[in-house]
């Protein structure tokens, strides 16, 4: 008799826990700066105030919908989820105190999407904009990441450095005026493949390099990025950089893109030629301190506009043919 009562009590306790409104996770949650409250359950009539509270109350695979313009606070994403703002006004996150605006630390099979968000550093101790630590795929659309300020190792607009093999896509997105690297693709450990795509991405006016494809950690790890219709301009170091200092490969294919007005090289490749490569076609390289610099493989389709750089615009010696 006693043996049956105890499980019954436990079951009752469990049921009352599950039924508590504050704990019921939803497929779709809502955030509102105007009338949200994190004591709410984040449904449409009673939205939450911050991304983090909404994330915590959203089922894996679910969606957070932004209801009105405002600031929604930093968030750490630990599951497959999307945060969507479709033209309702600025869906903002302010970053300071060495923190990160949006951290993705999801499971190795999780798909994460961010759409229509504005992340802005406000000084006061620095921080990074978007950091991807783990997950299966991340898609960043229609976002803007601005004025991240530095403490050592920070100030980066978008910092992709996963410990899981992953694909990361950035599309129709601005990254501007950051103290650190604008967009940094890397890997955190051995035997990890990172595939990146940049489509209509603009990286402006940073105090470091614009786009850095950096295999700097682990053996057998590969970082492979394709950029199309993108631009790196006005950065205080290089425009596009491929760097291989770890035990894997780093590559960038750059098409129909622009590298302009960067203080150092428009294009730079660092590392042994077998392991570090940059291929460029139909692109414009102009107004940079130097047009290009390479200790690895730099190859051109011979159809780029390389002009008005301070080094006299030497031809890229390796030309490959289209097929």
């Amino acid at each position: 008799m006693k043996a049956t009562i105890a499980p019954a009590l436990a079951l009752a306790a469990l049921l009352s826990f599950a039924a508590a409104p504050a704990e019921a996770q939803l497929s779709r949650t809502f955030v509102s700066n105007a009338l949200g409250n994190d004591a709410n359950n984040c449904d449409r009539p009673t939205p939450c105030r911050t991304f983090q509270r909404a994330h915590d109350n959203t089922l894996a695979g679910g969606d957070i919908t932004v209801l009105d313009p405002g600031g929604y606070g930093a968030v750490t994403i630990t599951r497959g989820i999307s945060i969507i703002n479709d033209g309702i006004g600025e869906g903002g996150v302010l970053v300071s105190g060495g923190a990160t605006g949006i951290t993705v630390a999801a499971g190795s099979s999780d798909a994460v999407s961010l759409r229509g968000l504005t992340i802005k550093g406000i000084g006061s101790g620095g921080g990074n904009g978007i950091v991807f630590n783990s997950g299966k795929s991340l898609i960043i659309e229609n976002c803007a990441v601005r004025t991240l300020t530095t403490i050592p190792g920070a100030g980066i607009g978008i910092f992709v450095r996963p410990s899981t093999s992953a694909t990361v896509t950035v599309t129709n997105t601005l990254v501007a005026q950051n103290v650190g690297v604008g967009i940094w693709f890397s890997v955190a450990t051995s035997a990890v493949s990172l595939n990146g795509v940049l489509d209509r991405v603009a990286v402006y006016d940073g105090q470091s390099s614009g786009v850095l494809v950096d295999q700097e950690s682990g053996t057998g790890s590969n970082v492979q990025v394709t950029a199309v219709d993108s631009i790196a301009a006005g950065n205080a170091s290089d425009g596009f950089v491929v760097q291989r200092t770890g035990g894997g490969t780093a590559s960038l294919v750059l098409t129909r893109s622009t590298s302009a007005n960067n203080t150092a090289a428009g294009l730079r490749v660092i590392g042994a030629s077998r392991f570090a490569s940059l291929t460029v076609g139909e692109s414009t390289i102009t107004g940079n301190g130097s047009s290009w610099s390479s200790s690895g493989t730099l190859q051109s389709y011979g159809d780029n506009n390389v002009i008005a750089n301070s080094d006299g615009n030497p031809a890229i010696p390796t030309v490959i043919r289209p097929k």
Binding site: R28, I84, D86, G87
Partner: peptide, 13 residues
């Protein structure tokens, strides 16, 4: 038609 009024969503399961 949803023209920039915010996310106009449909969940599928």
């Amino acid at each position: 038609t949803s023209d920039g009024i915010g996310e106009a969503g449909v969940l599928v399961s």
